[in-house]
Design a protein around this nucleic acid. Sequence first.
DNA 1: GGGCATATAGTAGGTTCCGACTATTAGGAA
DNA 2: TTCCTAATAGTCGGAACCTACTATATGCCC
Lengths: 210, 210
Amino acid sequence: MAKRKVSNTLALAVLGLLQEQPMHPYEMASVLRERHKDSSFKVNSGSLYDTVEALARHGWIEPVETERDGRRPERTVYAHTKLGQDEFVHWIDELIRTPVAEYPKFMAAVSYLGALGPDGATDALAERADHLEARIEETRAVLAETVGSGRVPRLFMIEVECALHAWEAERDWTRRTIAEIRDGSLFWPRVERAEQGWTWSAPADQKGRK
Amino acid sequence: MAKRKVSNTLALAVLGLLQEQPMHPYEMASVLRERHKDSSFKVNSGSLYDTVEALARHGWIEPVETERDGRRPERTVYAHTKLGQDEFVHWIDELIRTPVAEYPKFMAAVSYLGALGPDGATDALAERADHLEARIEETRAVLAETVGSGRVPRLFMIEVECALHAWEAERDWTRRTIAEIRDGSLFWPRVERAEQGWTWSAPADQKGRK
DNA sequence: GGGCATATAGTAGGTTCCGACTATTAGGAA
DNA sequence: TTCCTAATAGTCGGAACCTACTATATGCCC
């Protein structure tokens, strides 16, 4: 499978918005924020303008007019093309169908959880769990006042439910891990420098060596 | 909180490895792969050399010798510094403690799940669920032959358990969503262009308008 | 013992991405 | 009226990142 011409997912958001109506980049950013889509897409003005240009280069969108309001900077309004419309659907299909490796920062840190020691680790994990809890509450509130009130169809906010589910899972894992460190079921080896590489203490009678 | 000098998590991996012993970049990559850490860190030789250079620039690591074996390219061996050691622990603590926004590609695509239509969506989601299932099985196998056999302490592979948990959650959400689309409990509005913006059909008697 | 795949070690070059900045207008406080 | 802030609209320079490539050495199959 050949690599995508434009791989930034912000491009997906742009294509999505232009399915509805022509827009200029600044408006795209505003609409995305209004609809809470800025939790699924990193909406950064620098990236946005780059992305729009790249999409135009490849013929997936095209400028339809440039307006100027007083002495404000000129704005270029873009519309999607037939090509862009097809690509939009194919891209979504591919992204849903095929999981790709991602490298969340948390996973990287958990890799070296050992470096914090059992107390440092439980402390840091506990704080994370609290932050996650707060974020989960906020998200639930957003869902309640949009989908819950019938103002927005549930399908249009489905990614928020998906994210919510992921955070809940992360919170649960975090809490469970804290508990396992506390009650000793996650054994904490003491690593020591040996003449050749490292040795670590083992839970029962096992001894390991790298 | 001031921004980190080097924010690439690959730098965390480098610091982690150098806590054990001095190494040259190529060896770091090999060791990371050996230990299955390449699922938490994107190990790319180009990025690796850049990252190592950046760490050296900031004084977190330093070159200790350059060797040459026959006519092979020269290799520079690096060691961590006191600064790098402190930074390593602080960085991990921060990453664990404070969740940061990330933008997985799947979330972006789910945002526009509607574009696939109910049948296209269930089809794509089902394929994803199968891929996830396969990945989960593989990961379990890896855990069994390392931690399960007592060759590696569980703490040293804890990030693999964390990832496993996340994938299981994603698989569950995916399966549940497929079921909800099929049985109609996730209502699929038909969106239509109106004179001003868009209208969509509503499940019961509700009507919405953006 | 010739050829081919793989492991070793790193470089080069370009694209993408992002934070920080510019400049104008509108609205309200004082 | 003037000052200050927020909103509007976008630019710019540099860091990060990744792909593709170079070049040597080694093992091994036939």
